[in-house]
Nucleic acid binder design. Structure first.
Lengths: 222, 222
DNA sequence: TATTAATTGTGCTAAAATACACAAACTTCG
DNA sequence: CGAAGTTTGTGTATTTTAGCACAATTAATA
């Protein structure tokens, strides 16, 4: 099954810069917005202006994966969306588990925007017995003992961690042990994990502290 | 007041790559963790291993701002923390307003991690009358008409937007009009704003769609 | 149909970011 | 005290990323 073509494809894939992959979801998000507004066609220039990215950048990014546009016209939005979804493998629904049922976990569990962009939370877990059984949308919070069963049942590869920083490393280790391969970590800490596991971080404070560098100082207590 | 030294400093500041500034909060976060665990000294190598960054990278980043280490020993953690806080201007508390009091806004309003990293939410606002007066921690949700007063009172430059995508552009425009200069946007949309306004985005779906590129396809419905 | 305008995909160039490697300085220890 | 071992800060080289510019192609229009 490892035909020359496959290995070539695998090699190409490795050759595509991660930073390019990172922009595709942003393109997709904006294209879907345009599509929903009824627009049928767009150009790299229009997209670039909306995103603050040069048109050449967009064209070059897309050119890694094929030729999706038509000269003189631009891109058919519906078609390009489909192609991007295929490239990113979000042309279907991925099961995701959520660990941590605090305020943030609660907000994530009830968020309705996941499904139509390719993801569904299939289990919510917390270490605190007080939380067990509590309803969050269509799911009830389960104990950490039940994570493994859920992951097995849904062949789940992705986890969201919305746990305190102190618990994060231990939780992450246990998730990796049962087969989780990608983690979206809301805990304000950098995790140490085997390199086959991909981790992405969301920490609003990091963004704030980045912003303040460029502001004139204006604190409450100087 | 615009002495040569100032203008030199301003020029230097512009010369420091944004990507470097973006790493400083991550260094700071980890240094504080080490500090809280009782450690007094660290090296660029130790820090780099924890963060998955080369030691040379860390040293070069820091060298933009001064010489903080000692050869043969490394860095005094408490001292380096103080210096980084000063560079990032988080050696005090910045007032932040929060627009949007849905589930996410609620979670953010109740999050207790802001204060000791330099930020405090000083007002929560929502357009829905049903939300007005509702308690969120020590704050009550106010109407959008009251944003301006609050921003003026606290000389607030930073806003969090936790509103639906459809409302985001209009909300952002109004925030900019009353003087907000930095926005942390949780709405899944790229905003069009004057370039003196800095916007950072948090959208978990963007991270998910980035991750799936590297996973073997394993969706619920293929 | 011929002309003009628009837009893509890409080879080449420029700029930015990262990694290497080492002198200088400090610490430890026999 | 001297030698061996660390670690910083930085000049240089390498790699990565972004930008430019244009031939090729399509659409629109007169």
């Amino acid at each position: 099954m490892t035909l020359p073509h496959d290995s070539q494809a695998a090699q190409d894939k490795l050759a595509i810069p991660d930073i390019v992959i990172g922009r595709l979801p942003i393109y997709l998000r904006t294209l879907k917005l345009l599509l929903n507004s009824g627009q049928e066609v767009t150009s790299s220039q229009e997209l670039g202006e909306r995103l603050g990215i040069s048109s050449a950048q967009i064209r070059k990014d897309l050119s890694h994966f094929g030729e999706f546009g038509k000269q003189g016209t631009g891109y058919n939005i519906a078609y390009l969306c489909k192609q991007l979804e295929k490239i990113l493998k979000v042309d279907c629904v991925w099961p995701v588990i959520l660990v941590g049922a605090g305020h943030l976990g609660h907000a994530l569990a009830l968020y309705e925007g996941f499904e139509n962009r390719g993801f569904r939370i299939v289990g919510v877990f917390d270490s605190a017995p007080a939380k067990w059984g509590q309803e969050m949308g269509s799911l009830a919070v389960q104990s950490m003992d039940e994570v493994s069963t859920c992951v097995g049942q849904f062949h789940c590869q992705i986890a969201i961690m919305a746990v305190p920083a102190e618990a994060a490393q231990a939780v992450a280790d246990s998730l990796v042990k049962i087969g989780i391969r990608s983690i979206l970590c809301y805990a304000p800490i950098t995790l140490s994990l085997p390199k086959h596991v991909r981790v992405e971080y969301i920490d609003p404070l990091i963004h704030f502290q980045h912003m303040t560098f460029y502001l004139d100082k204006g604190c409450i207590d100087e």
